[in-house]
C-alpha cells in the first residue's frame, strides 16, 4: 500500500508545515515508511508552495508522484494547477473560504472546509493548516486523532495559549472531516 498526498497553496498558509506534521506523525507513531518532499524555488516569500507526502509499507521510491491519492488545495491557483494530478476516486480537500471555482471533475470525492474563515474566527489565521489537518484526519482516518494531535502539540509551540488554540483548531477540523465522511 502506498498513499500519495499533495498539499498546495500560497506561501504563508502553512502548507509545508501541514505536510511535515502529517508525515512526522506517521514517523513517530507507526512503523510505516514516509517521505516528505517540499518543492523549493529561488523565492524566499510569496508565490505558490507545495509539498508531497508519501506513506508506504514498502520503502518509498519516488518522493513525488505524477498522480496523488489525496490533494489538499488551499488557494485558487493551486486548484487549476494540480487538479489533474488527482487519481480517479481520489479525495480533494478544498479551503472553500478562498477557493470559489467549481471543481471540473466528478470522479473524485470533494471535502470542502472554510478553514480560513474558521482560523479568523479562532483569532489566528496561522492555524488554518492545523484545521485542515483535522479535516484530513477526520475524513481519511489514516492516523488516530490522538497520535496526530500529540505530534501537532509536540511540534508547534509549547505556550499554553498556543496549545489550547491548536487543540481547538484540530478539533474543529476533525468535526468537518468526520461529518463529510458520514454523508
Amino acid at each position: 500500500m502506498e498513499r500519495n498526498i499533495m498539499v498546495a497553496g500560497f506561501g504563508g498558509q502553512g502548507v509545508m508545515v501541514m505536510g511535515k506534521l502529517l508525515s512526522n506523525a506517521v514517523c513517530d507513531s507507526t512503523t510505516q515508511n514516509v517521505t516528505f518532499f517540499p518543492s523549493y524555488g529561488a523565492e524566499q516569500r510569496g508565490g505558490t508552495a507545495n509539498c508531497y507526502v508519501v506513506i508506504s509499507d514498502e520503502p518509498v521510491g519516488s518522493p513525488m508522484s505524477d498522480t496523488v491519492d489525496d490533494l489538499v488545495i488551499m488557494n485558487g491557483p493551486s486548484l487549476n494547477k494540480f487538479l489533474g494530478k488527482l487519481k480517479p476516486g481520489g479525495i480533494l480537500f478544498i479551503n472553500n473560504t478562498i477557493v470559489k471555482d467549481a471543481v471540473s471533475r466528478d470522479d473524485v470525492a470533494i471535502v470542502k472546509a472554510p478553514v480560513t474563515d474558521i482560523s479568523l474566527e479562532l483569532g489566528n489565521p496561522k492555524v488554518l493548516n492545523v484545521i485542515m489537518l483535522g479535516v484530513y484526519i477526520g475524513y481519511t482516518g489514516i492516523l488516530s486523532e490522538e497520535l496526530m494531535l500529540a505530534t501537532i502539540l509536540g511540534q508547534l509551540g509549547k505556550k499554553a495559549s498556543l496549545l489550547e488554540l491548536n487543540k481547538t483548531a484540530f478539533a474543529r477540523g476533525l468535526e468537518i472531516g468526520k461529518a463529510a465522511k458520514g454523508k
Binding site: 511535515k20 508525515s23 512526522n24 514517523c27 515508511n33 514516509v34 517521505t35 516528505f36 518532499f37 517540499p38 523549493y40 518509498v60 518522493p63
Partner: peptide, 10 residues
Amino acid sequence: DGVLGAIIEP
C-alpha cells in the same frame, strides 16, 4: 542531490 537534501524521512 537536491531531492535527497530536501526530503524528510525517518
